[in-house]
Amino acid sequence: MKLRINGTTFRVEAHPLERLLDVLRIQCKLTGTKEGCGEGECGACTVLLDGEPVNACLVPVAHAEGRSITTIEGLGGTEGSHPLQRSFVEQGAAQCGFCTPGMLISASVIPAGARREEIRCALAGNLCRCTGYSAVYRAVELARAKRARRRAR
């Protein structure tokens, strides 16, 4: 089976019903995607499937075949250079860091110009026990403001 992950093709041997989460973590060694509950509640395993956030713990790998998958490793590389990643650090939006990859993936597809309420809705499927979410919203808004300022220049 071939999987297109972060722009790279991975060849994996996997039962079609294996969870995408396990294939990513165990076979592809992309351990940035985390497991927090195994039942689609916490969002720690969020990845993009053809650009849409999904819980990798609820996706049989068969459903990912032939589609484009984005994990945290594909967001801003090993440096974490995506503007959202930088602002997460700056604003204290990552504490223990375990929900962070999933949170960032969900945040990465929030449309530009989203208001606070829309940001909350877009992140409603991602649980964070550390921050109380306020810092996460500030980080998302800061990244947007920075991008807007760069555009304005």
């Binding site: 973590r25 992309l30 351990t31 940035g32 995607t33 985390k34 497991e35 994990t71 945290i72 490793e73 967001l75 801003g76 590389g77 090993t78 440096e79 974490g80 990643q85 930088r86 997460f88 650090v89 700056e90 204290g92 990552a94 860091g97 375990f98 962070t100 990859p101 960032l104």
Partner: peptide, 21 residues
């Protein structure tokens, strides 16, 4: 002051290694 937390970059990049990793 509030400098970036020391392991912050690894946490946001997904390279921080937890036990299951």
């Amino acid at each position: 002051t509030s400098p970036p937390r020391l392991e912050g970059a690894a946490k946001v990049a997904g390279t921080a290694r937890y036990v299951d990793d």
